[in-house]
Design a protein around this nucleic acid. Structure first.
Lengths: 344, 344
DNA sequence: CTCACAGCTGCAAGCGCTTCCAAGCTACAC
DNA sequence: GTGTAGCTTGGAAGCGCTTGCAGCTGTGAG
């Protein structure tokens, strides 16, 4: 394999000049640059990544820690991150830490402390303040998406606010008998939604003077299948059925719609359903939802990091609320006329 | 940040011994090893990734090239790859090259030639024989999943074989009026299934003496939504409907089931549907399918690579057929009695 | 008791770049 | 004509490890 030395010889330049010419840093005359580049091209030479990183201290590599790359939200974020990073000439080192705490720690040591990445994007990951300080101390900017990272920069949606808006949408349509499907405890751990969506729902209901029936607060694992099972219970067992369901994710909303159909309930005539996410399948089911654009969140995280990395400004820990978009489709409507309002 | 030198001093050993102790290579007395390790632990020292890589030539990093990380098959493969790689102490550099050819080339140069990865796993990626030779020439093992990589090691399922089996399943149930939903040309490019599934279908039909109606050969983009749209056309427009649909993926099978339901067709009473994949949603829809276990394929690819990397045997280009599993559920049954068999 | 051998250890030469520093040059103002 | 500022350029010192080589020690065989 040719080295920079070979390029220098061929181009009739010094190693230093070739390095500057190829990396684009420092002043090089147009003539030298061109010579260096064509010599490199002729030899099929490319700068060695590790040597460059070792000498310069920059990696052009960002670590991405996710609890899953298979579930909708996470794979969407990763797509956004990946595209933005690739455009900027950065590598993306993926850490899919589904196994739990133990692994998460080895990740921290093993790739952050070994300084193989310039920065890290943590999706729905919970780090202690101490861990974050450790990262920041060794000058590794970190931005979190969707998880509480005390002391670090984060991007997230206003969970309780949009939940409240979703519930209010149903209330304004005239619903009072509204069920809420929230995330399983186990899954909440990954998604780090510590009941904030449920909080928004409760608040909207209370503000409207509606009762939240305990048996209408159900949970599922954020999947269509899981929600389907929960929704069957919800819709099948109640002597009085809710007239609307607010699901904490689109996949759960879809599971609910499928369950409703199985019971012969028409959506939205007999049952209104609303979700949160902006899932691709939403359109097919006419699902009213709140689009949170995870790809955009990923892209924003990257831009935030790169700004801090390339500029020299120490990006202060900023908490950005990512804007969401209310998408009204056909799964929500006024409640059926024969449904008695629920009295507190 | 502490360096290996600091550890050596603290442990009262030479740098060389500490290096051997921490990396586990070479002979070190138990006593020295222990000293080195505790000194490192006390200082919070971790070997520098780039320095190690530069000096040793090994990266402990595998590049994964995928056309998408969002679609079911790919994210499943990535999960399998990721878990296996992490267990082995390797990093995973993700290259999500959805943008097409141009980017793919820059990827090759920029990360393979810069030798930042020890090996590459290419999922559904088409490389020319020349490109593969280039990789192998610089000693970068490459294994492909699901794509034809002439000269490289590959793992794939027997597409035409399982398609034939799927079609035969329907035929044996008594169906003759069978439609096939195949992948869009645009998506076939990503999945690299050059009609092999369709080929298997055609063969089974011909072997059984059944006619393949051109209007019953439809295509979609491998998504539920896309398949739904295609299935509506298929099921709505034909004066004579097929009694069974064989979809080239589970997602398309599910889209077909949803469309059938919209037309009031019962599955399997009025319409049998079979897919290929082993998608998590299959169970919910009672979908008969052929499970291809993409996670397992990813894990196998990693094991194959590591065997070649850690052992010194030059892994010959091996073409492994990954085993699939026929999963019979409730979406397939005998055709309705009133359906006249189709005569060639 | 001596020798051969194997296991340990340390020295030092890299791995292949980046970048500080100083020197050479050009151009322009005075 | 001289001085100076601003570009360019090359030399060389690292970046922080790994590893070949050689010396050293201890052990068992002869």
């Amino acid at each position: 394999m040719p080295g920079i030395k070979d390029v220098a010889e061929r181009a009739g330049l010094s190693i230093a000049t070739v390095s500057r010419a190829l990396s684009g840093k420092g002043n090089v005359s147009a003539r030298s640059r061109e010579r260096a580049q064509s010599a490199a091209a002729e030899l099929g030479f490319v700068l060695s990544y590790h040597a460059s990183s070792l000498a310069s201290g920059r990696n052009h590599n960002v670590g991405v820690v996710v609890p899953s790359v298979h579930r909708w939200f996470f794979s969407s974020v990763v797509e956004g991150v990946s595209a933005t990073l690739l455009d900027a000439g950065y590598d993306l080192t993926l850490y899919n830490v589904s196994e739990g705490e133990e692994r998460r720690h080895s990740v921290l040591n093993d790739f952050l402390l070994r300084k193989r990445v310039d920065a890290v994007i943590a999706v729905s990951l919970e780090l202690s303040e101490a861990e974050i300080q450790q990262l920041l101390a060794i000058h590794r900017p970190i931005v979190g998406i969707g998880g509480p990272l005390p002391g670090a920069s984060t991007i997230r949606i206003n969970d309780s606010g949009i939940a409240e808006a979703a519930a209010r949408h149903l209330i304004q349509l005239g619903h009072s008998r509204i069920a809420h499907m929230t995330g399983d405890a186990a899954y909440e751990k990954d998604f780090r939604l510590p009941g904030t969506r449920q909080g928004g729902f409760t608040k909207a209901m209370r503000d409207a003077g509606h009762t939240v029936r305990p048996e209408w607060l159900v949970s599922a694992d954020f999947t269509i299948q899981g929600a389907y099972a929960s929704a069957r219970q919800l819709l099948g067992s109640s002597p009085e059925r809710p007239t609307a369901v607010f699901a904490a994710s689109d996949e759960m909303a879809i599971g609910t719609i499928l369950a409703a159909r199985d019971f012969g309930l028409r959506v939205p005539d007999d049952l209104s359903v609303i979700g949160i996410d902006g899932h691709e399948l939403g359109e097919l089911f006419g699902l009213t939802t709140i689009d949170q654009d995870p790809r955009g969140q990923g892209a924003m995280a990257v831009r935030r990091l790169l700004a801090g990395l390339e500029g020299d400004a120490d990006t202060a820990a900023a908490d950005t609320e990512y804007p969401t978009r209310f998408v009204i489709r056909s799964s929500t409507a006024v409640p059926p006329v024969d449904a008695a309002p629920l009295r507190g």
